[in-house]
Amino acid sequence: MIRVENLRKAYRGVVALDGLDLDVAEGSIAALLGPNGAGKSTLIRILATLLRPDSGRAEVGGRSVTAQPYQVRALIGLTGQFTAVDDLLTGHENLVLVGRLYRLSGKEAHRLADELLGAFELGGVAGRRAGTYSGGMRRRLDLAAGLMTRPRALFLDEPTTGLDPRSRRTLWSAIRRLPEQGTTILLTTQYLEEADRLASAVTVIDRGRAIATGTPEQLKARAGGARAEVVLADPRQAPTATEVMSRYGARPTLEGETVTVPVAESALPDLLRDLDTAGVPITGLALRRPTLDDAFLALTGGDS
């Protein structure tokens, strides 16, 4: 649905996109993960026909964003980094305006606006000015505005930046439902948790290049497998514990009273029994799975 090949863009000599490649399958949610200045917003702006790339190809629904921008605009919805709602218009008026500019009839625009306001739990405040909304409500209204075009591809640029955890969760569940209606979603985020929760494919970008692509699970695997963390009752037994644990994984590390070793998750009961047999009492045991954070730090060289 969205295809990007060797895309380049520089602003006055500062490189924003440096040969980026990306492929997003129809009906999926893809996340672009990267630190500030990685080029995420530049890519979204190019795909939304707001910005021309210097070179490379970018297509949405098989249409080129540079050669057929008008056709691309008919396919997309955009919820940008800044909440683009008009504070002096009501929630309902905001949506109807976008719908009518998308060439819907008045009746159709009103119907769709009501439907979306309901779906985003804004039905009760539809007649109030958007300026009176909370941050989370404004963001949901903004997302609804992006959907007034019934887009086949929806771009979300940092959709939950600045929201409190509860609003973030509400927005996440709204976003997760969108592919059911056949919408393909490309979102950018700095939050690894967000990519993990929403996306089936994650592309990590850094300095304008894709440095890794895969499912969240695949990316986590690149940060190494699971690790067992054993908290010793008596730190003096660390050498014995380390010896036992080295049978399960390479190079156990000791930090304070905690010994950590990479393990296969299924080996945990055996490890526990062996420690017991060797007479090493423990006060804590944890199985730590790698997070996208670990993957991200590993991929970007810890420089985020």
Binding site: R45, A48, T49, L50, Y70, R73, A74, I76, G77, L78, G80, Q81, F82, T83, A84, V85, D86, V98, L101, Y102, R103, A145, G146, T149
Partner: peptide, 14 residues
């Protein structure tokens, strides 16, 4: 322009 409202208009087929 600065609030992103213009970006939304410009991404519509108007």
């Amino acid at each position: 322009m600065s609030r992103g409202v213009m970006d939304r208009f410009r991404s519509l087929p108007m």
